[in-house]
């Protein structure tokens, strides 16, 4: 890409206020996630019963919890876990779902129709309940929750990608590529993937937010991260008997979840505008 083109695209990206706020939040959260270990002022697991349920102070910015642990350190440390797992789960779902959707849509035929019938049947079932059932059968903990999320989410990507491929497949440039003796693999790589990539990126950005909401909700109801893991939803669960005494135990972890999900939604919306997805799809 020429420098001038890169510059004009970057300007277009920043010009959108949605995207600017989204990018700012992403930089902040990304920085905290990566540098988390060096940023924490206290050991997030250090119990200190003499110092429990303290309010905000110079030493403890967000106060301390029922076991005297520093809430600020736990939230920063938890960012790595909550955001990292959300991104990781969606990455795996994309890596499994997209190729299957690509080939199923490209090859088509009866097998494709049969598979999609089953997929539609599963997809109309609530994903939250399916995740509960899978996590329930495997046993409630964080690893099994991630397995459950991947098992549920990859199907969505396969379904969406297949639909996009079916629509693109009939267009002339794919036909041209086919009659010029390109292999199926080459046609998919050279023509279809660049066409559907923006849709996948937008979907994945919004999905990371959804998965973070799901992980924290599961941890809150006790089916996800177990104490003393400082996952944000688990922190809310652990501290829920003490909210009346120390409201900061309730405020900060929830705020962290909301800002992270907001960031994902803003980025998703901003990217949707940037790629002009609605216009391209008519």
């Amino acid at each position: 890409m020429e420098p001038a083109l890169i510059k004009s695209r970057a300007l277009k990206l920043i010009h959108d206020p949605t995207m600017t706020i989204g990018l700012f939040l992403a930089l902040l959260l990304g920085g905290v996630t990566i540098l988390g270990g060096w940023l924490v002022p206290h050991d997030p697991f250090q119990i200190n019963m003499n110092n429990r349920l303290q309010g905000t102070s110079f030493d403890h910015w967000f106060g301390t919890d029922q076991l005297g642990r520093d809430v600020f350190s736990r939230i920063i440390y938890g960012a790595k876990l909550t955001i990292g797992l959300g991104v990781f789960a969606i990455m795996i779902a994309v890596v499994i779902g997209v190729p299957i959707g690509l080939f199923s849509g490209f090859i088509g035929g009866r097998v494709d129709a049969f598979l999609m019938r089953i997929v539609d049947g599963i997809l109309s079932f609530p994903d939250f309940i399916l995740a509960i059932a899978i996590a329930g059968m495997l046993g409630p903990n964080l690893t099994n929750l991630i397995i459950a999320i991947v098992l549920v989410r990859w199907i969505v990507y396969a379904r969406v990608v297949r639909g996009l491929v079916l629509a693109e497949k009939e267009k002339e440039y794919v036909l041209v590529s086919k009659v010029s003796f390109s292999s199926a693999f080459k046609t998919i790589r050279m023509h279809l993937i660049p066409q559907i990539l923006p849709d996948i990126i937008v979907m994945a950005a919004i999905d990371v937010g959804k998965v973070i909401l799901l992980i924290s909700a599961f941890s809150y109801i006790g089916l996800g991260a177990q104490p003393p893991i400082p996952e944000w939803g688990a922190m809310l669960n652990e501290g829920r008997s003490y909210f009346q005494v120390v409201p900061s135990l309730m405020i900060y972890p929830g705020l962290a979840i909301m800002l992270t999900v907001l960031c994902c939604n803003l980025l998703g919306d901003g990217l949707k505008n940037y790629f002009d997805i609605r216009k391209r799809r008519g």
């Binding site: 809150y220 809310l236 309730m250 929830g254 999900v261 907001l262």
Partner: peptide
Amino acid sequence: AMLGASIPSFWLGLLLIY
């Protein structure tokens, strides 16, 4: 709509209770 989609429902519930 944007904030509604981003707020964890259980946290909103906790705030309302509080």
